[in-house]
């Protein structure tokens, strides 16, 4: 069965085609703010390069974030359009799970870090594992400040080692160094969430029956809309 995987949460646009859970083709580009323009044509090109018709696709996988709100909606709206019109299942995978899967190893904790802007970092912590494609976070998917990331790391990781990856690493470097933890960094090419890995995770979840409710599924925003927070702050101030 063919599966299309889309990842649009970060400035990297990544699209992959998998056959029976194995990556066959992948396209990655640094297309900040151009995901809306490039995503659909990229899917079309990948399909035609493999000689496939859209009807040959049996499932869609989409990165659910956290990440850029707009990027997430471009990806998920595209995934919903494909899944609904082709009448095929949709599987979502957290973008942090995708990053972690490329980094998780048996003898270290892993923390993918994504720049969430406004002084925050999206992060989740993963235990060591021999099966990175099955990894699930020990924590929730969080938006923290750098010093909070370091404090969490110190508490969870203890005397173990910690692997960090993602475009938010540079934001946490100083605070992580100050913890005296043994921190490993991945080479930069492993710092972007790749659709080929997303697709492999999704294929396993699909086999396990983890399919999304197409109508209700939404991105992992983690953070609420600024207007909601402002309204609440105002309400709390007056009561």
């Amino acid at each position: 069965m063919w599966l299309v995987a889309l990842e649009t949460a970060t400035p990297t646009l990544s699209v992959a085609l998998l056959k029976d859970g194995k990556p066959v083709a992948e396209h990655n580009e640094q297309s900040k703010r151009r995901h809306a323009v490039t995503l659909a044509p990229t899917i079309a090109t990948l399909l035609s390069e493999q000689g496939l018709k859209p009807q040959d696709v049996g499932a869609v996988a989409c990165g659910s974030g956290p990440g850029s709100f707009t990027g997430l909606r471009i990806g998920l709206s595209t995934a919903k359009g494909l899944a609904q019109s082709l009448n095929i299942p949709l599987v979502t995978v957290s973008t942090l799970d995708v990053l972690a899967a490329a980094a998780v190893r048996p003898d270290a904790f892993t923390a993918p870090l994504l720049d969430a802007k406004q002084g925050h970092i999206y992060v989740a912590f993963y235990a060591g594992s021999k099966e990175p494609l099955n990894c699930r976070p020990l924590t929730g998917y969080l938006a923290l400040r750098s010093e909070q990331v370091a404090a969490q790391a110190k508490e969870l990781v203890g005397k173990n080692r910690l692997t960090v990856c993602g475009d938010g690493v540079f934001l946490c470097k100083e605070d992580l160094m100050a913890t005296n933890l043994e921190v490993l960094e991945l080479p930069s090419w492993q710092n972007v969430p790749r659709a080929s890995i997303l697709g492999q995770i999704a294929a396993r979840r699909l086999a396990g029956g983890e399919v999304e409710d197409l109508a209700a599924v939404k991105p992992l925003y983690v953070r609420r809309a600024a207007a909601e927070l402002a309204r609440e702050a105002k309400k709390n101030a007056t009561t």
Binding site: A36, A40, V57, T70, S77, T78, G81, L82
Partner: peptide, 20 residues
């Protein structure tokens, strides 16, 4: 609203692509 437009547009493009 660009964020709002992108939902409908991304969805519509996916349907156009999927149904040729």
């Amino acid at each position: 609203l660009v964020g709002a437009l992108l939902v409908g547009l991304s969805y519509a493009k996916a349907v156009a692509l999927a149904q040729s």
